Amino acid sequence: MKASDVVKQIQEAVGEAEKTGIRELQFSNLNAYLANVLATAVEQERGEPSMTEAQANHQLEVWKAQLSAHSTMSVEMFKSAVEAGQTALRSAIVINGGAAATVLAFAGNAITKGPILPGMPLLTHIGTALLWFMFGLGGAGIATGFRYLSQFAYNVSHGGAARWGRAGAVSNVVSICLGVGSFFAFFVGGVAAYHAIVLPTT
């Protein structure tokens, strides 16, 4: 019950008393009437909702906007993570493949144009570098396959299959480890190639 409703009820009660010819009001009767109005107001307030319909609609719109923003942010973060992983694997494939091709070209020129025979320290170090580059290239390729498997498993797990979700998580971890190993193999192969050129006799 609103305050205006209480005032209106009191005015109506006073008007009805005045119509009946009453010119004076007893405090006991007035207090009893006000106590009755107060009890009615308290009882109605208990049954009223904690917010008006307009407030409820406003809260609903705010919640919908927050949910939409959160969903959009989650989707964009997922897309950025996928694109970052794809870019990293492509970079690993390019740098390891390019390094392997460079080492092969160097070894070919060294054998055909110089007095270098198979088994010499230079070719041994170059072969070691080439092997590491091939490990890096193969690891990046396998990581790409596990990346696809993880996305497939996550897609299937949306239907409620928990085991597919676990499989997707495992595939994702394997893909990350292989990607990191691919970059590690590139650096190890680069060190081996450095030793082959700078310190060919060691």
Rank of each mutant, 00 (worst) to 15 (best):
F187E: 06
H158I: 14
V198W: 00
N172I: 00
T144F: 04
V188N: 01
T112R: 12
G98N: 09
I93K: 12
T128W: 02
I111Y: 13
H158V: 13
S182Y: 04
R90F: 05
P115Y: 14
M1T: 05
I111M: 14
A162F: 01
A99Q: 12
L38K: 13
Y194T: 11
L38E: 09
V156Y: 04
G119A: 00
N29T: 11
C177T: 07
Q26S: 12
I95D: 03
R166F: 05
N96F: 07
Y154D: 15
T124A: 09
A161S: 14
Y154F: 14
L123E: 08
L199T: 03
S171P: 06
A100G: 02
E76Q: 14
Q11K: 13
A140V: 09
F27P: 08
A196P: 04
E18H: 12
M51K: 12
M1F: 03
K64I: 12
A193S: 00
Q86F: 15
L67E: 15
A143W: 02
A169K: 15
D5N: 04
T52P: 00
S71I: 14
L199I: 01
I142L: 12
A185N: 00
A143G: 04
N155H: 14
A99C: 02
L199A: 05
N29G: 07
G165H: 11
V170A: 06
P49C: 02
G141E: 08
V62H: 03
I111A: 13
L149T: 11
L89G: 08
G189T: 05
G119Q: 04
E12R: 07
E76R: 13
T72D: 10
A100M: 13
E61P: 03
S150T: 05
G138F: 04
A185E: 07
Q151R: 09
V14R: 12
A153S: 14
T201W: 01
I111C: 04
G165L: 08
G165V: 06
W164E: 13
M73P: 01
L60E: 13
V37R: 08
V42Y: 10
L60Y: 11
V75P: 00
T202S: 11
E53P: 04
L34T: 06
A167T: 07
V37I: 12
A196V: 03
G141H: 10
W164T: 05
E16V: 06
L149S: 15
S74D: 13
G190Y: 02
L131W: 02
V42S: 12
L25G: 02
V198G: 00
A129V: 01
G97E: 10
P200E: 01
E45V: 07
G159F: 07
A100I: 06
G114C: 05
N57H: 11
F78W: 13
I22T: 07
G97D: 06
A140Y: 10
F106P: 00
E53Q: 11
A54N: 06
Y33F: 13
N29F: 06
S50G: 13
A129L: 02
A88M: 09
S150W: 03
A88C: 08
Y194A: 10
S150A: 15
T52K: 09
S182I: 03
H58F: 09
A105H: 09
S175T: 10
Q86N: 14
A169V: 07
N109L: 15
C177F: 12
K8Y: 08
Y148K: 14
K113F: 07
G139P: 01
T20G: 08
P118R: 01
S171K: 06
A17Y: 01
Q55V: 04
Q59A: 14
L34H: 00
F78T: 15
R46T: 02
T144P: 06
A84H: 09
